[in-house]
Amino acid sequence: MSRLLAASVTLPTSTIPIFRTVASLREWRRKAYLEQKSVGFVATMGALHDGHISLLKHSLSRNDLTVLSIFVNPAQFAPTEDLSTYPRTLEADLALLEQTKVPEPSTESERITSAIFMPTVQDMYPSGITQDVSGQKGTFIEVKGYGHQMEGGSRPGFFRGVATVVTKLFNAVEPTDTYFGQKDIQQGLLLRRMCRDLLLSHPEPGHLHIMPTVRSPVDGLALSSRNAYLSPNDRKHASSLYATLNVCKDAWRDLRDKNLAIEKALAYLKERSSAAEADGVLIKPDYIHMNDPDTFDDVQTYEEGKAVILSGAMWVGKTRLIDNIILGNAEGILG
């Protein structure tokens, strides 16, 4: 299969069709409609890793066709953040996608990614885009009351950028099902709410799936494209966040007091920080929060079995990491 490219753009060779414009993708999508085929969708910013591939395999196994997008979204980066240095590994990404296959149900053939959507910034933001929110023009999506807690408290405006670009991607791809990772749990839950509030049919809220975090088999570090920023010394201490969240989880179960649980977790992280300093690595906590998965409000009291999102962020050297654990009953959140 040949690639479909914007005339002025040269991309690495790929056996998977690459769509550079919304118009070309919609032409492909209309054909899928006529053939009554389901379309799964995985949204990425590239720099693919095993976490992305896990989402892709879920889509391939459950849908007739699968689209994966690669778009580094300027609207979700603050002016001080890493838009210009965000990992870009397109050649390796395309090779990985070509290698990723799952068995076709009831046949001897295999499914592979059906199409790659790589829109231009101009196509995604026809009115132009700047990282300075005060200078932005055009239409943007904000999920009021649900974007300032947890991760949004440290990154004001982040979820406005996420909601906007994902709405655009959903409008372009019109997925039957879409797949997001638990590592970005607030993002997935917020987007599910957005689908409900905006009455989206592609996907319907119940067809936005949040899949469990994929972790390093060595130390449990949540896989992330930004892990590429970690130096070898940083990497030795990067699992401190997940370990700290597990300490908090155990303390929450035993003490049933949020403040005491977080206090114990931070004391543990302080010990890990001292060990890191011996390697010349600075660990700095950003937050540890416990929130309701529906309202994102802070959870104060322990209720047996009640779902709680325990999330955290910290700096390891110059790299900011996030992670979370679902406490209690995760039914209705994951899957």
Rank of each mutant, 00 (worst) to 15 (best):
S311G: 15
Y179D: 00
A251K: 14
T113F: 15
V22F: 09
H289N: 10
S154G: 10
E174V: 02
G138Y: 02
Q36G: 05
T21E: 02
T295C: 09
S273N: 06
I283K: 11
V173W: 02
A238M: 06
P79M: 11
I112Y: 12
K236I: 04
T139I: 14
L310E: 00
T244P: 01
E151N: 07
T44E: 00
A6R: 13
I70C: 08
Q99E: 07
S114N: 03
E91V: 10
D294N: 13
L208F: 12
D286Y: 06
I129V: 13
A261Q: 02
Q182M: 01
Y287G: 01
L255V: 15
S154N: 09
K57N: 10
S216Y: 06
K168F: 07
P105M: 03
R160M: 13
V308K: 02
K306G: 01
M314D: 00
G147W: 08
S154W: 12
K306Q: 12
A32W: 12
E104G: 06
R20Y: 10
L94T: 08
Y242H: 15
L97I: 04
H289V: 13
L25K: 12
S239L: 03
V299F: 08
R160S: 08
D250K: 13
D82S: 03
L90W: 08
T44D: 00
K236Y: 05
L4G: 04
S225G: 05
P12E: 02
T167E: 00
C248I: 12
V9Q: 09
K57R: 15
T107Q: 11
D279C: 08
L327Y: 05
Q300G: 12
K270L: 04
L334A: 07
V67D: 00
F41A: 00
I333P: 01
T113K: 11
K264W: 06
E91G: 07
Y229D: 00
A276S: 06
T178P: 03
I322C: 02
G335R: 14
D184N: 06
L245K: 09
M211Y: 11
P232C: 05
S274A: 13
R88I: 05
R30V: 08
R26L: 01
I288G: 03
P212D: 01
A330D: 06
N324R: 06
A6M: 05
I18R: 09
L169N: 10
Q99Y: 05
G317N: 04
G138R: 04
S274T: 14
T301S: 11
N171A: 05
Q136P: 03
T10L: 13
S14I: 07
G206N: 11
E110W: 13
T66P: 07
A276D: 00
L90I: 07
T85M: 08
S311Q: 12
S38G: 01
R20G: 15
R30L: 12
A238D: 00
K236V: 07
P126I: 08
Y268E: 01
I326A: 02
Y125N: 09
M150G: 03
A75T: 11
N329Q: 09
W252T: 04
D123K: 02
Y33D: 01
P12S: 09
L245T: 06
R3V: 15
S84H: 07
Y86L: 01
G328H: 04
P232E: 02
M118T: 10
F41R: 00
R196Q: 11
T244M: 02
I309V: 15
A115F: 10
G153L: 03
